[in-house]
């Protein structure tokens, strides 16, 4: 089928199997490799993208399900050279080990802070429960999310 997507502000159309995972379309058709494969079953959050501002696990989403939607991947979050405050916060707190979970973690944080601009530790821990950091860098990620929340409230 023909699928039409707006990805990071750019209109894209492609003809593909409707069952193909969005993750693979982003990576293999559009070379947007910031979105990662971690498990293929929606358990780790490495493949998180934003669809109309909300979190979506692209590894378990057939591309046909997002036909006509607006998708933001990690590559589309910064405005030119100006990073999103969540990206800045992750840098400021050094909340990165291997960095493989980082794109999903950052996008998930962006969505979380829209819902909860003033989150408690518990809000962050449950809000990011679906995001796996195998390096277990959660302590600094927690700080980064608070840091970002503070910047976004300003």
């Amino acid at each position: 089928m023909n699928v039409s997507l707006n990805v990071n502000g750019q209109q894209r159309t492609l003809s593909t199997d409707p069952q193909r995972p969005l993750l693979e379309v982003l990576r293999e058709e559009f070379q947007l490799t910031g979105t990662k494969y971690g498990c293929g079953e929606g358990q780790c959050g490495a493949c998180t993208v934003l669809v109309d501002g909300r979190r979506l696990l692209s590894c378990v989403t057939p591309v046909s399900r997002v036909d006509g939607k607006t998708i933001t991947t990690i590559e589309g979050l910064a405005q030119g050279d100006a990073l999103h405050p969540v990206q800045e916060a992750f840098l400021a707190e050094g909340a990165i080990h291997c960095g493989y979970c980082t794109p999903g973690m950052v996008l998930s944080t962006v969505a979380l802070l829209k819902e909860k601009p003033n989150p408690t530790d518990a809000d962050i821990q449950s809000g990011l429960a679906g995001q796996l950091c195998r390096c277990c860098g959660y302590p600094k990620i927690l700080k980064a999310v608070h840091h970002a929340a503070e910047q976004l409230r300003k």
Binding site: R27, T33, K36, I74, E75, L83, Q87, F90, L91, I96
Partner: peptide, 29 residues
């Protein structure tokens, strides 16, 4: 001193190419 990871900016913007992200001309999966 606490020097941050030199390529950390690439990691937060999704620009770093992990081995999974390498693509070669004509590459098959």
């Amino acid at each position: 001193t606490s020097v941050p990871r030199p390529n950390q900016r690439d990691l937060v913007i999704g620009a770093h190419q992990f081995p999974s992200d390498i693509s070669r001309p004509g590459m098959l999966y």
